[in-house]
Structure formats: structure tokens, C-alpha cells
Design a protein around this nucleic acid. Structure first.
Length: 588
DNA sequence: GCCGTTTTCGGCCCGACTGTTTTCAGTCG
């Protein structure tokens, strides 16, 4: 059964193929927008494909796209897509993916030089015949050559958890530059997306040159891609991985507008600008200005901005609530009356409910775990080592678990300022049964049930498996529901809506595993779970601690949960000790 | 192809930078 992601990929491809045929750019954009809407949609579109009105209710999907979705659901393909694939060589899509090559150029390469693939492109670069094309000089060709090599060496987008420390290290240096009032990272990193295309930085200074100088001279800069009056772009090489980084320096009075602009998303910005126009204003990265007919930008003519020093001022002048960065994705947040939910925040987390010790595959002792959790201001830490089936992870047989429970109770006596829960991360077998019997499970304060094996299971089976687990009366939480590993393993494709409904009915929490390789549930799943579970939906955010540094993964889980719109009061880790413990006991 | 405080047609955000041009097209975010 195809997923929304599969469908989104097809519409994205249609949009690229249309671009290459030279189609109307608004039509191209409409398909790209539909692809995003589909990828972000929390309802499984295959299940409502017959309902044209329901499809068209989704922003960005009109009558034509709705028909194509139904066609896909009924026949397994879309004729327009197939026709485009016959017309346009599919190898051109990888040529289009080369940084610096856009649809116009790729089309010329195709029509004039019969380039149909990346290999063809390399060939006409090697034999020099690419130079016969218009606007192709030495530098352009050299840039294309380097872009191809960059693309071949980098494996696409960088995981959030890998990008964050790089960004913070750069930021530290930018903030130290004399004359810099403020600096932040922006872009998809600030929005907390699970993968990052490039790093964006914004700095406030009246002396852009000195900031640029520091930025371009950093030791990890491999190449300066662009360097102008107000922005510059470099390619970084850090621990063998390459990533592009862009810096924009603006005067302090424009800082908020620039941060807003560079944080995006692009679609969110477009909505803001459209709204500004309707209000007789124009928004750019320097501020919000009165609209006039002059051809030059307002800031260049000394026009005074009505807002721009802070992001808040811009939203306020547009009559909007301030939108948290994680929710700036054009999902209706730019509209009258929209109010942000009281989102979960890192500082509100008071408990870690998924942690391993050296009894299974962790490196910490129970005491060390407790001390580290206490130092973070937590009122509760759950010790949840692996169950017997996870042999590779040194999972505990029942007799070892019983001894472990005794050790945990003893440790609890030594640590009076934090509650140490005796728990387990129990394997969910492929058929939905659990890895310990009920009698043993009942001895535990907390049971986290997680899938670890059979992760290529059929979606319908996976759904039944997870529904069975969350419906089990002794289970408190479903750990990393899909078992995916970012860029390494797809994991299960369960019907999250069904799992979330069952979980809510049994007051079982669904975990957002904060490990940046997992981020599982993902943002879309969190939103699905909240919608499906309603008032009873419970979400946990846990670090799945194996090593001391794992506690620091929490922020990635929080960002992911915020992207899913998780309010703090639905997050069990934010609850008071009394409320959390009462919920746990209610299942005993 | 979508959408509506410009509403069933006619719009659809805005600016910076590069390279190849002699005034701007293409790309990017």
C-alpha cells in the first residue's frame, strides 16, 4: 500500500518533469506545493482517495490534483506522470539536482547537446563541447564541475543532530566578532526539521565586512561560493562531511525581519508577504514597509520600516500571533485568529522514561543514571533495560530482570531526591505479543514496549502488532514506533492513526524517541497521534539513554514534538511527579 | 494548477549574487 510519502514523491517528480518541458511555472509550483501538502498530511490519502471533497479540502489540492490522486489509488499510477517520463529522460532529474543548474540550463543541455544523464553532462564537460552553449564560460563550467563532485561526495541532507553542533560552533565565532549585536542560526535547523540541507546564519552588525571576513576564514571552509555586500556563502568540510553555509548580515534594526526571512519556510514567507501586500505593506528581509510604486526597494530609499527589529514586531503588525519556528510550514498558521498551542519546551521536561544501564547495552550504572537525571532537574528516571529477545543488546532473562529490579529498589533507597522507576523496554514480537509474561510485567513500575525485530513487516501486520501492544493493560508506552533509522533503515509503516486511537483508548503514551538517528515518532506522526487521540492522546519524549551524552539528545525530540504541535500538557514528561506516578500506577 | 478582504478570472513574493553580458538572465533561498 503506497504511503503519502510515495505519492508526494510522484508529485514532486511531476513538478520537476514539467519544469523541464518548459511548462507554466505556476503549474510547476502548484504540483510542488501539492507534493508538500501530501507529505505533511496526517491522513492517509489512499484511504480517502475516493472522496474528492475531502481531498480538495486540503490546502494546495484542487480538482485536478484530487483526480490524479484518485487515479493513482485506483490504477497505481498517474497517466500524466507516465507520459512525462516518456517525454523527458529521467536522468535529467539528477542533472537538475546539481547545485547551480536550474530548469532553463538543463533544458538547453538536453535540447542542444542531447544531455540525458549526469554521465552525459560529464562527457560534454570533459570534451569541452559544453562551452559552445550560450552563457557558458570558463567559470560557469568549473562551478558545474565542482557542484557535481560536491553532490557525489555529500550524501544529501545532513541529520539534525549532526548539523546542530557544527552550527553552534560557527555561531559562537560569529557572536564573538566585534560589532555583532546578535547572531542566530536560521533555516530548517531552527525549524527543527529532521534533516538539514544547508546551514543558515543571520547576524546584526553595522560592519558586515568584518563578519564576512571571520566567516569565510574559518578553518573548516573548503570553498567560498559567493561573497557580496550583505551575504556570503561557503562550503564547509567537517569530519569528512560537506555542507553549505550561508550568512546574511543586516543592520540591527532589520534583524528580526532578516531572521524571519532566513528561517522560512519559504512557503511561510510567501504567505506573510501576500498578507502584507493585502494590507498595503511590503515585507522583505529588511523590514515591513509601506507599499508604494517605486521600482527600488524601500530600504534603499531611506523609507522607515513599520516593523523589523524583532520577529515579534513583524507578526504583530501583520495582525498575527507570533509563530514558533517549528510551525512555520504554511499549514494555516498565517491566518486570522490562528493561535499557537502552548507547545512543549525543553525546560518543561522533568522526567526521562527510557534509559538503559550496563545491565543490558548501556554504559551507565543505575546510580550514575540517577545522578545525571537529578543534575538535569528531573524528578523521575526510569530504568528500562532490554528484554530477553534482544540478545545482541544483552537483554535480561526473567531471573536477571528480577535481580535487576531488586538493585533498582536498593538504588532508590540511596537517591531520595529523585524517583527511580524499575522498568523494562520490552520487545514487541512480530505477532504483537510481549517478551515477558504478564506476571513479570506487573512487577515493573513502567513498561515501554518497542519493536526491534521484524521491521520489514507488512503495514497491516505492523498495525495489528502495535495496536496489540498499546492495548495491553500493563504497557505504559510505545517506544520508537516504526524502528526507523534515518538514512539507514526505513522501519515499519503502521497506520499511525489506528495505533494512536488504540493508544488513547488505553491511556498509553506514544514515544518521540529523541535520538537524532531515530526521531520516531516523527513530526507528522505526532500531529496524527494528537488528532486521532484527541483529549486522551499522550506523548512521551525520551532520550533512550545508553551513554551520558544521550541526555543531550532531548532537544531534538522536543523540536520534533513541537513540529507536531505537541502541547506541554499532553507530554507525560512535563507532568508533575504526582500526576506522572498516578498515571503509571493506574495501569497496575 | 490553485485560489478568493483582487472571488469564478487573473493574479500568483522579494532581493542578492554570479557570470557573462555591455544591461541582464538564471539560480537560490
Amino acid at each position: 500500500m503506497p504511503t503519502n510519502q510515495d505519492l508526494a514523491a510522484i508529485f514532486e517528480q511531476i513538478s520537476h518533469l514539467l519544469e523541464l518541458t518548459g511548462a507554466d511555472k505556476f503549474r510547476v509550483n502548484a504540483h510542488a506545493r501539492a507534493a508538500r501538502a501530501i507529505a505533511d498530511c496526517s491522513t492517509d490519502l489512499m484511504s480517502i482517495a475516493h472522496d474528492r471533497a475531502a481531498l480538495m479540502a486540503i490546502d494546495g489540492i484542487g480538482p485536478r490534483i484530487a483526480d490524479k490522486i484518485r487515479e493513482f489509488a485506483e490504477t497505481g499510477s498517474i497517466k500524466e506522470h507516465q507520459d512525462l517520463l516518456k517525454e523527458v529522460p529521467s536522468g535529467l532529474l539528477e542533472v537538475l539536482a546539481v547545485p547551480g543548474l536550474g530548469p532553463k540550463t538543463v533544458r538547453v543541455l538536453w535540447k542542444e547537446k542531447q544531455v540525458k544523464s549526469l554521465d552525459d553532462l560529464k562527457r560534454i564537460i570533459a570534451d569541452g563541447s559544453i562551452m559552445e552553449l550560450p552563457r557558458m564560460g570558463e567559470k560557469t563550467v568549473q562551478n558545474i564541475r565542482e557542484s557535481i563532485s560536491f553532490m557525489e561526495q555529500s550524501s544529501g541532507r545532513m541529520p539534525l543532530g549532526m548539523a546542530m553542533p557544527i552550527a553552534e560552533s560557527v555561531l559562537e565565532r560569529l557572536r564573538a566578532v566585534k560589532g555583532v549585536h546578535a547572531a542566530d542560526f536560521a533555516g530548517s535547523l531552527r525549524r527543527g526539521r529532521e534533516t538539514i540541507g544547508d546551514l543558515d546564519f543571520v547576524a546584526a552588525s553595522d560592519d558586515p565586512k568584518s563578519v564576512h571576513a571571520v566567516f569565510t576564514a574559518m578553518p573548516e571552509v573548503e570553498k567560498v561560493l559567493a561573497s557580496g555586500e550583505s551575504k556570503c556563502s561557503v562550503r564547509l568540510k567537517v569530519q569528512g562531511r560537506r555542507i553549505q553555509a550561508d550568512l546574511r548580515v543586516v543592520p540591527p534594526e532589520s534583524y528580526g525581519a532578516a531572521l524571519l526571512y532566513f528561517t522560512g519556510s519559504k512557503e511561510h514567507n510567501v504567505r506573510l508577504r501576500e498578507r502584507a501586500l493585502r494590507m498595503g505593506l511590503t515585507l522583505n528581509e529588511y523590514g515591513l514597509f509601506p507599499l508604494d510604486d517605486a521600482p527600488t526597494p524601500p530600504q534603499a530609499r531611506g523609507v522607515r520600516a513599520v516593523a523589523g527589529k524583532t520577529e515579534e514586531s513583524v507578526y504583530q503588525h501583520l495582525g498575527l500571533s507570533v509563530v514558533p519556528p517549528e510551525l512555520r510550514e504554511d499549514r494555516g498558521e498565517v491566518s486570522d485568529g490562528w493561535q499557537p498551542p502552548k507547545l512543549v519546551e525543553l525546560k518543561l521536561i522533568r522526567a526521562e522514561l527510557h534509559a538503559h544501564t550496563s545491565a543490558s547495552d548501556g554504559t551507565l550504572s543505575i546510580d550514575q543514571l540517577a545522578e545525571m537525571a537529578e543534575k538535569r532537574g528531573f524528578h523521575t528516571i526510569a530504568v528500562t533495560d532490554h528484554s530477553q529477545s534482544s540478545t545482541l543488546a544483552n537483554g535480561l532473562k526473567p531471573e536477571r530482570l528480577r535481580a535487576h529490579i531488586r538493585s533498582i529498589r536498593e538504588a532508590a533507597e540511596r537517591h531520595k531526591r529523585i524517583t527511580i522507576l524499575a522498568g523494562a523496554e520490552v520487545d514487541i514480537h512480530a505477532d504483537g505479543t510481549l517478551d515477558y509474561d504478564d506476571e513479570l510485567l506487573a512487577e515493573l513500575d513502567i513498561v515501554v514496549a518497542s519493536p526491534h525485530a521484524s521491521l520489514r513487516q507488512d503495514p497491516a501486520l505492523a498495525t495489528r502488532r502495535l495496536v496489540a501492544a498499546v492495548s495491553h493493560p500493563l504497557v505504559h508506552m510505545l517506544g520508537h514506533a516504526t524502528g526507523r533509522l534515518l538514512g539507514r533503515r526505513e522501519g515499519l509503516h503502521p497506520d499511525i492513526k489506528a495505533v494512536a486511537e488504540a493508544a488513547a483508548a488505553h491511556r498509553t503514551a506514544l514515544e518521540v524517541n529523541a535520538n537524532w538517528l531515530r526521531l520516531d515518532l516523527c513530526d507528522v506522526h505526532v500531529r496524527t497521534a494528537l488528532e486521532a487521540g484527541g483529549e486522551n492522546a499522550l506523548i512521551a519524549i525520551d532520550c533512550d539513554v545508553h551513554h551520558p551524552a544521550d541526555f543531550d539528545q532531548l532537544r531534538f525530540g522536543v523540536m520534533t514534538a513541537r513540529r507536531g504541535g505537541l502541547p506541554a500538557d499532553r507530554c507525560v514528561n512535563c507532568w508533575t511527579a504526582r500526576k506522572l506516578h498516578a498515571w503509571l500506577k493506574s495501569k497496575r
